[in-house]
Amino acid sequence: MLELRHLRQFVAVAEELHFGRAAERLHMTQPPLTMGIRQLESLLGAELFHRTRRSVALSPAGLALLPQARRLLAEAEQFGPLARAAAQGTLGRLRLGFVSTIGYGPLPGWLKTFREAHPGVELALREATLDVQLAAFEAGEIDAGFVLHAPGDRLSGFGAVRVLGEPLVLALPADHPLAAQVRVKATPVLSEPLVIFPRVISPSLYDAMLAFYRDRQAGPRIAQEAIQMQTIVNLVSAGIGVAWVPESVTRLQRPGVVYRAVEDAGLACETSLVWRLPQHPVVRRFVDHVTAAELSSHKETP
């Protein structure tokens, strides 16, 4: 079987064109070097050197093999650094799921700085709701994901770190009577037709929103369900109803829609970065990066 030692011996002799000097370079004696070259020639079925008592020269086969042997040895030298980089999470591929709401917030900045700090990590992004991400985790298609949920909720069997907490605000058609108020009260909202996401895409948050109505002895008038926040906001602009959305969605400016805080609602949501256990090194590197960035942003906020 061809071994790297054969290639090292061949390259040393090819570059020195002298078995004695090549043996010294390899810190070995000449007889085993001569035997190693003969083994290589036997394995390849070709003579690599023309030898005389006074000279050593590369044969046509040796001339053809030399650049390939150098390339293989150079690649073999990278095995150690590559393995260490992969083990440390600075090399590899991170398949990341994310809900659209985090895209309106800090996610673009986190991705930019992570790519700059870890150019050896390839990012593969997939926008997906919680239910789609769970299926992707099960199928081994993503490594980590940003998910939206009610405050304090956790996914069983996953590692998680909370990265964002924010209130829910009300998206209203611009011509709605409540839109004229800077801040609105909860009571007038209870009877308004509601545009909401299906429960399956965030059960804990959906249940928290319905509990808001039940606690006030009201039943939500669900006018329409939609999956994406952008679609929900568009339906509000069409006058289909009002919608509770994370505060970060207010960065999505849509003609015909205004956003208002509801003073006595107390509704909020959280976004967490989740991953399957045990944690992959690249995932650990990304989690550490996001956590550090989030801590830094809190320190900078007066």
Rank of each mutant, 00 (worst) to 15 (best):
A186F: 00
R38E: 14
L123G: 10
A136T: 05
A117R: 13
D207E: 14
T187K: 13
F10S: 05
A87C: 12
L111I: 12
A87T: 11
E16M: 06
W275N: 03
E225W: 01
R51V: 06
H298T: 13
I142R: 02
E294K: 05
P281R: 05
R216K: 07
L65G: 09
V184E: 00
L73F: 05
A223W: 10
T250C: 09
Q230R: 11
L148S: 11
A74I: 03
A23C: 10
V274P: 04
E41T: 07
G145D: 08
V258Q: 04
V184G: 02
Q9E: 14
R214N: 01
R5D: 15
M209G: 00
F158C: 06
A292T: 10
R183A: 12
G159S: 12
R260I: 04
A64M: 11
E122I: 10
P60R: 09
L273Y: 09
V121G: 02
F79T: 14
L40R: 02
P60F: 03
P32W: 04
G140F: 06
F10Q: 06
G219Y: 09
P302W: 11
F146G: 03
P81H: 10
H50E: 01
A292W: 05
M35T: 14
L26P: 04
I102K: 04
E41A: 08
H27N: 13
C269T: 15
D131K: 01
V236T: 09
G157N: 07
R221F: 13
A139M: 09
V257D: 03
I232Q: 13
R51H: 00
L44A: 06
A23Y: 10
A83K: 09
A144H: 05
A223F: 10
I102H: 03
P302F: 06
A14N: 05
R21P: 02
F286G: 05
H298P: 01
A218I: 05
D153W: 08
E138F: 01
V257M: 00
Q133T: 06
H118K: 08
P193Q: 10
P167E: 14
A179S: 15
L2E: 08
F98L: 07
V287C: 09
E3D: 15
P203S: 04
I227R: 14
L273F: 02
Q279W: 00
A139V: 06
S248I: 12
A208H: 09
E75I: 05
S191A: 15
G159Q: 02
A174Q: 12
R51L: 06
I222C: 12
T301W: 11
L130C: 08
E247H: 11
E300H: 06
Q181L: 14
L96A: 02
A57D: 02
L72M: 15
D264Q: 03
R38L: 13
G92C: 04
V233C: 10
